[in-house]
Write a protein that binds this DNA or RNA. Structure first.
Lengths: 160, 160
DNA sequence: TAATACTTGACTATTTTAGTTGGTTATGGC
DNA sequence: GCCATAACCAACTAAAATAGTCAAGTATTA
């Protein structure tokens, strides 16, 4: 399980998809425009998301992508794993050297942590993230209002 | 906050350090041998860990590295951030484009998630990981025993 | 003072990231 | 039956990160 900008792009795009799924499929071009991600890069990501059956595609005019399942049934971890390919396998599948004492211990400790992280990401669904939309929406509008009017009086407040 | 093999190396090395800190400093050469990480690469990682004041170094014969604080006071997140440098800044500090509706929303949603992950990693200390040592120790010995004796009867049991 | 072990800096091969280019299919509307 | 739309596909690429290597130091202790 990696956690890089690639996963961020994937999650961001899926969130955009969930937000704008009101009437029919959403085109990648629209996501690209809204989220500032290159169209061709999005195509690569959505090829993987489609293969993992997280989205379905509709070709032709009026086509685009839709979520396969309700946003509440799609875990953030699913998206990250889908776009990053190769679920685990991150360098630790050589069990041969695991006979010596210390090596084995820290290997297992890392795996334990790694599992915790994965469990955590699998426990958060896209839908849950979207439910906090209202709060964040207000926060965002306030912020952009202040930026227009004032001179960014307080900075570092939303540094997530 | 990234989560790559670099962070894994850092955490693994710190765990090794905590485990073998019984009598005086631990040399990087010993960690390199036990964990199968290149010495020079470890040097780079520990330069950063030292600058973040997670470890102290002692030069000369009998020297090496020691933890600055008890293992319970060092969060996994601290280690990952230390070796990966640049705490956040992952592409999302352009607040300029955040005036439009959708862009802002998913930005904030991602930041929310990103914060959750960071909080989670900061809530786990090296000490807590080590406390599960006993359980894992047994599991490991059992596993290696089986590998010696049998023919890996059940595989995929500890695929963390 | 010689061996040990940390310290620093420069260099490098490989892989990943974040695209670009240039097409090809499929489809709905006119 | 065109034709614009939009998904699909494959190959290529510049830049960055990863995971090191190599070579020279410097501090410390026996």
């Amino acid at each position: 399980m990696k956690l890089t900008t690639k996963g961020r792009y994937g999650v961001t795009a899926m969130l955009d998809l969930a937000l704008n799924a009101g009437d029919g499929p959403v085109t990648l071009a629209a996501i690209a425009r809204r989220q500032g991600i290159s169209l061709s890069y999005l195509e690569q990501l959505f090829t993987r998301l489609r293969k993992q059956e997280l989205v379905v595609s509709a070709r032709g005019p009026g086509g685009g992508y839709s979520l396969c399942k309700p946003a509440h049934e799609i875990a953030v971890g699913d998206v990250i794993i889908a776009v990053d390919e190769k679920v685990d396998a991150a360098g630790c599948n050589d069990r041969r050297n695991c006979d010596s004492d210390t090596r084995c211990l820290t290997h297992d400790l890392w795996h334990e942590l790694s599992k915790s992280i994965r469990d955590f990401l699998n426990s958060i669904s896209l839908g849950e993230l979207l439910e906090e939309r209202n709060v964040l929406d207000v926060a965002c509008r306030q912020n952009s209002r202040k930026q227009q009017v004032g001179k960014t009086a307080e900075n570092g407040t939303r540094q997530a």
